[in-house]
């Protein structure tokens, strides 16, 4: 008896053997950068990124690096926050809440009781208002950025690219990636957008410029 694998591959080959037309080359004439702005104009890229995030309902703080600690202290809740390994400690110097380390990995039930999570990111995309996390230093494993109700992400200005095509080449698909474009949301009821379902209901982005 032949295996399902062999059968399916044989069916695929049989189906394709009867086709007359060989498809042509794949055209790639779409834009490589965000439309409407000059990708070399960093101020425009950062402004677009912030604008998109705000449209999604995220809170955005644009700060100088000297002010990150103060801004985080104000933006984080009183209670507790998961802080992944590799997140720069000085940024939390002024916050008085409880730092929760995820080592050894916390059970999901425990993560669910933490008020916030603070992370860095691997890349950010202006055109779509997207943060990409790849589990690298300061980003933690995926469960840790999912269960707390507030996700605060610190983005360095030089991490922000204008478009998805610019970002994708720099990302490593072997790592588990989470692309976040605004807080969790649904439009499943009468196509009306409701913000905040299962993922973090609030998203705060601290954009560090200079």
């Amino acid at each position: 008896m032949s295996s399902a694998r062999d059968d399916i591959l044989a069916r695929v080959r049989a189906a394709n053997a009867t086709q007359r037309a060989e498809p042509g080359a794949v055209p790639r004439t779409y834009l490589r950068h965000a439309p409407g702005i000059d990708p070399a104009d960093r101020a425009a890229v950062l402004a677009l990124f912030a604008e998109r995030l705000v449209e999604y309902g995220a809170t955005v703080h644009r700060v100088r690096s000297a002010d990150v600690a103060a801004v985080l202290a104000a933006a984080l809740p009183e209670g507790s926050a998961v802080v992944p390994g590799g997140f720069p400690a000085p940024w939390l110097a002024e916050w008085t809440g409880a730092v929760i380390a995820d080592t050894p990995p916390l059970p999901a039930g425990r993560l669910d009781t933490v008020d916030a999570v603070v992370t860095t990111c691997a890349a950010a995309i202006a055109d779509s208002g997207t943060l990409v996390l790849d589990g690298g230093p300061g980003q933690g494993r995926r469960a840790a950025t999912l269960l707390p109700d507030l996700h605060l992400c610190v983005v360095q200005a030089d991490q922000v690219v204008s478009s998805i095509p610019e970002a994708i080449g720099a990302l490593n698909p072997r790592r588990p990636l989470t692309w976040i474009s605004g807080p969790s949301a649904t439009a499943d009821i009468e196509m009306i957008r409701v913000q905040g379902v299962h993922g973090p209901r609030r998203l705060t982005v601290v954009l560090v410029e200079g």
Partner: peptide, 18 residues
């Protein structure tokens, strides 16, 4: 929407994550 709120990509398994 420009992007849906969440896109998850994964390849096989990752030790310590998921």
């Amino acid at each position: 929407e420009r992007m849906a709120p969440y896109t998850t990509t994964w390849t096989g398994t990752t030790p310590g994550d998921g």
